[in-house]
Design a protein around this nucleic acid. Structure first.
Length: 558
RNA sequence: UGACCCAUGGUGUAAUGGUAGCACAACAGAUUUUGAUUCUGUUUGUUAAGGUUCGAAUCCUUAUGGGUCAACCA
């Protein structure tokens, strides 16, 4: 039953429940409201809920919490289903809180009959006023004295559409003096004459979250209803409804939601970024949404691994986004196909090169697709007289620890030959325009008999057949670690340089890239094809850079 | 001026009255035809004060700090 990892507090509860025989099988649920796209925080909840039923042999339902028709849309329902599936989970049942509207209506009638609920004509302001504050008791108004018959009649009329939005509500009759504000006669039903994405115009009254969620759990025989910390105070109400209604006793447990450094997790704020065009959409690769991360090149495996690593507890937390990047690098390193792409090129002319056998200025060389995975096979690359290397892989006046190319020095060109820099050619302005080098024919990769040893190995492409591609480099969306914690509006902290589009010169094999493939551009990072890519204009997203200890070294010296 | 939840290295998370461990980060070194990967090692922690106990991160009390609660949102 247990794994190598120690149990989190919810697993402990479940194991106790299973051992005591409280349940023979567990049932969890993932209950998104279809009013936005899923983000990495939801992934934590998804992995938890589905992971639990997988681990202990149970069920997990997908239930859309669609009790507020004004914010919910079918588009969101579809995206949520796609994202959960992509993450690798299968739900036992697809349910909707709106499936239970009739049943929920009956529950309200039962409470009214038992004298536990009443219809209130007060305005929103009046109700807020009467509710008191956390330190001051609330007061009950005269409507609480209505008879059961009157309440039943009014509730029925509410359903029939006799009243307009805000004119009447149904409240539970609990305790206006409770230190828990939610117990001060909470609202059960409100009138909303708006179109619902599933029930259309059938209803004009809709249950509130508290009156829908627990009962929906109960109807589905959910054994462990897992939610985030801010619902702790709702638990008392959750249990009250179940007790008064005498229905299956689901139990609520709360864990701390995920916070990620340099990003925001609020659906409301993410929606704002989309609506106000700070990003191109919910699936913008800079977004912490599942769809954004998918487009960026994250794999389901890496996200699941991340969710496993961060753990489940009740303490407020802010996870270093570096951990997420570690997880995706770890997975991509195993599966990504290696390719060579030069971003800021400088031309290298191999002055002594000529292919003797073919009497040509180029030759084919073999290189591995993935040095971490022999099964990935080999591919051909073209070496020739004119090559392109990265401008910052050359230094006219090298620093001590620099072991790339510099005048008189040698480097290995990956999977090709060792070259030596003989001459720097500059233009009128003094900029380096090309490098004249000689190569050592006997230093060919795989059959090196030169006896030469070099410290540096560079990536390169043939100048004549390099393929120009567009590469989108992403950086964090925010400049501060915790944007939502700041006093000022979160949008003031948006990183203006979160997207940089650059040109790259890729080896010819890049033309065969598939959108399902992941790539490592050697010594650069991990990339994947963007959905906007075409055969004429290849567009790559940078998922994440490679770790770069040289960049760190340079920084240290400054 | 209330109720509730929480407190372990820089960040997360274990240890369930008996050796404070793991991951990321950081640092140092080895290997390397990717300054990547891999490998080895190092640094850093129980919020505080009392109490219970042979023994406390763990139980109790108080304090301190952080979070949540006054939507006809979920």
């Amino acid at each position: 039953m247990s794994t190598d990892r120690s149990l989190n507090f919810i697993e402990e509860i479940i194991e106790k429940d299973l051992q005591s025989g409280a349940y023979s099988q567990i049932c969890t649920r993932f209950p998104p409201e279809p009013n936005g796209y899923l983000h990495i925080g939801h992934a934590k909840s998804i992995c938890l809920n589905f992971g639990l039923s997988l681990k202990y042999g149970g069920k997990t339902n997908l239930r859309f919490d669609d009790t507020n028709p004004t914010t919910e849309e079918v588009e969101y329902v579809e995206s949520i289903k796609e994202d959960i599936g992509w993450l690798g989970f299968k739900w036992s049942n697809e349910f909707y809180a709106s499936d239970y509207f009739e049943k929920l209506y009956e529950f309200a009638v039962i409470l009214i009959r038992k004298g536990f609920a009443y219809v209130d004509d007060s305005s929103a302001d009046e109700i807020a006023e009467q509710k008191g504050t956390p330190t001051k008791s609330g007061v009950r108004n005269k409507y609480a004295d209505r008879t059961v018959e009157e309440n039943l009649k009014l509730f029925s009329e509410m359903r029939e559409g006799k009243y307009n939005d805000g004119e009447k509500i149904v409240r539970a009759k609990i305790d206006m003096e409770s230190s828990n504000m939610l117990m001060r006669d909470p609202i059960l039903y409100r009138i909303k004459k708006s179109h619902h994405h599933r029930t259309a115009n059938k209803w004009c009254i809709y249950p509130m979250y508290d009156f829908a969620h627990g009962q929906s759990d109960s109807i589905e025989n959910i054994t462990h209803s897992i939610c985030t910390l801010e619902f702790i105070s709702h638990r008392e109400l959750y249990n009250w409804f179940i007790e008064k209604l005498e229905i299956f006793q689901s139990k609520q447990y709360e864990f701390a939601r995920l916070n990620l450094s340099f990003t925001i997790m609020s659906k409301r704020k993410l929606l704002q970024l989309v609506n106000e065009k700070y990003v191109t959409g919910w699936d913008d690769p800079r977004m912490p949404t599942i769809s954004g991360m998918r487009r960026r090149g994250y794999t389901p495996e890496s996200i699941r691994d991340f969710c496993e690593k961060i753990g489940i507890a009740k303490r407020e937390n802010i996870i270093d986004v570096g951990l997420l990047e570690f997880c995706v690098r770890e997975h991509l390193n195993k599966i990504a196909l290696r390719r060579m792409v030069v971003f800021d090129p400088i031309k290298v002319v191999i002055t002594n090169y000529q292919n003797k056998t073919l009497n040509e200025n180029f030759e084919y060389l073999n290189t591995e697709n993935n040095n971490e995975d022999p099964n990935a096979g080999m591919r051909k690359i073209t070496f020739g007289k004119e090559l392109l290397i990265e401008r910052n892989d050359f230094m006219e006046f090298p620093t001590k620890k620099y072991f790339r190319l510099s005048p008189g020095q040698m480097v290995r060109l990956k999977s090709a030959y060792i070259i030596k820099c003989d001459e720097i050619i500059k233009d009128e302005l003094g900029n380096i325009s090309e490098l004249h080098c000689t190569y050592f024919p006997e230093s060919k990769s795989g059959s090196d008999t030169s006896g030469l040893h070099v410290k540096g190995t560079l990536h390169w492409v043939g100048a004549s057949n390099a393929v120009e591609v567009e590469v989108r480099e992403y950086d964090r969306l925010f400049n501060v670690e915790d944007p939502s914690r700041e006093e000022r509006d979160f949008k003031e902290f948006i990183n203006a340089n979160s997207l940089k589009s650059v040109k790259g010169f890729a080896e010819p094999s890049i033309k065969n890239a598939l959108s399902s493939e992941r790539f490592q551009f050697l010594r650069k990072g991990f990339y994947c094809l963007d959905k906007e890519s075409t055969t004429e204009n290849l567009i790559f997203n940078r998922t994440v850079t490679l770790k770069d200890s040289w960049a760190k070294e340079i920084k240290k010296d400054k």
